[in-house]
Amino acid sequence: MPTDRRTALADTAIDVLAETGVRGLTHRAVDRAAHLPPGTTSAYYRTRQALLTALVRRLVALDQAELQEIGEQTPVPRTAGELVAQIAAFVEQRLTGDGRRRSLARYACALESVHHPELREILVPRRNAGRQVVHDFLAAQGVADAEDRTVTLLTCVDGLVFDRLVGGGTVSDQEIHGLVAAALR
């Protein structure tokens, strides 16, 4: 649990957004969820936009830290099967537990960024060690446009996660295998 009040409020705002959607994200809702006196959140984030911006910054920071850790702990796969297994483990995490909560909040923020370009700038995908693992695998397999194929593969995986969060279910290894195979062609 973060000791910094601003970080704790942003974390709580992520939970509120995941549970109630963008319309339910209010200063009062965050105060209630954090078990704090009314007005606490607005003392730290005066406007709803300031709260949303802090939430998005925290979400990106958490995601980047997670992806960095994955990349540092995950060797570049030697086979397509190893890459499929690594992606499948990542997708499973995104669909359950903390990953599910953050995924729901991330997609809500992505939709909100259509109307608030300043949020889009914060949400822009960044380089990270997890993404580098996929790139390095594709490059090692002789894929000429490894960067473009990495972006396409990870975008398709993200689409599967979104689809399963909205529609229910899981992502099968066969679906991921198909995406990896397409990236290798």
Rank of each mutant, 00 (worst) to 15 (best):
166 V>P: 00
140 A>E: 14
164 R>S: 05
133 V>W: 09
145 D>P: 00
141 Q>S: 09
122 I>V: 15
154 L>F: 12
124 V>F: 00
133 V>N: 02
168 G>N: 03
151 V>S: 01
140 A>C: 13
151 V>P: 00
169 G>A: 05
165 L>Q: 07
153 L>V: 00
166 V>R: 04
156 C>D: 10
119 L>D: 06
160 L>R: 14
126 R>T: 15
139 A>G: 04
166 V>K: 01
142 G>H: 11
140 A>R: 15
150 T>C: 08
170 T>L: 04
123 L>D: 11
131 R>K: 13
116 H>M: 14
133 V>C: 05
146 A>C: 03
146 A>T: 01
162 F>V: 10
150 T>L: 05
165 L>A: 07
119 L>W: 12
140 A>S: 15
158 D>T: 11
169 G>D: 10
122 I>C: 05
162 F>S: 09
164 R>C: 11
150 T>W: 03
152 T>C: 01
142 G>R: 01
162 F>L: 14
169 G>I: 09
147 E>N: 05
129 A>F: 03
142 G>F: 08
149 R>G: 09
128 N>V: 04
127 R>P: 07
131 R>Q: 09
161 V>A: 09
145 D>S: 11
144 A>Y: 00
121 E>L: 15
132 Q>Y: 06
136 D>H: 02
137 F>Q: 00
135 H>A: 06
128 N>R: 07
166 V>C: 03
122 I>E: 05
127 R>V: 11
165 L>E: 04
